[in-house]
Write a protein that binds this DNA or RNA. Structure first.
Lengths: 102, 102
DNA sequence: TCCATATATCGAGATATCCCGATATCTTGG
DNA sequence: CCAAGATATCGGGATATCTCGATATATGGA
């Protein structure tokens, strides 16, 4: 848990929003039939929702992944990203510990 | 509670350390006799502990204050800074809410 | 009043972040 | 194998952050 890297990654409203949107699959268009039952959301859907360029969103997802905040799984040409709930909780705890606990 | 501004302010290990140090007055040299009973720590002590220039620390304390994370009180030539516990808790809650709660 | 001390502000060079378009890579269908 | 589509990476211009030294401001003491 690299708090510094995680905070840098989350010090951006769009990346925070993405993490927030990923909380519920219903924030995105329905998955293709062949992807039914798969967890996560593909880059194109996230891009459309965020309204930024493809390269920017791919980069953002890479940053979120490097910080450990999302997990990714490739299925064919698609990469599906989903939240890493454990890491998100760990980040919040580390942050709270540094700020509040002695 | 401007989450964005607070996160930007705390996206810096020295500023986080300062907030951490301010948790306990004993992290700094003893107060001068004439300042006994006063809450907070003067800029010079914080500067010495952080090992950065006077202007940098003054600037940092200004950022922390602007973000609402510390309170300041002037006494003579000295400015005493102390944590704003309510704001720190509010920040953590807002951050947690954006990341975890629906 | 004049000075020394504590803090704040200014201006700037170095570095990092933001976000894009262009291009490269990977994968499936034909 | 090849073309098309999804994603990843590259290169770069604009903007923001980092941190400094120099300077300005404020205050208490001689």
């Amino acid at each position: 848990m690299d708090l510094d890297k995680a905070l840098t990654t989350l010090n951006n409203p769009v990346r925070r929003k993405i993490l927030h949107w990923l909380k519920h699959r219903s924030n995105f268009p329905a998955a293709l039939p062949e992807h039914a039952g798969l967890d996560g959301v593909c880059v194109a859907y996230i891009q459309e929702k965020a309204g930024l360029s493809q390269s920017t969103i791919s980069n953002y997802m890479g940053l979120l992944k490097e910080a450990g905040l999302v997990l990714s799984e490739r299925h064919g040409q698609f990469t599906f990203y989903r939240r890493n709930e454990d890491a998100i909780r760990a980040l919040l705890q580390a942050f709270e510990k540094e700020l509040i606990e002695l």
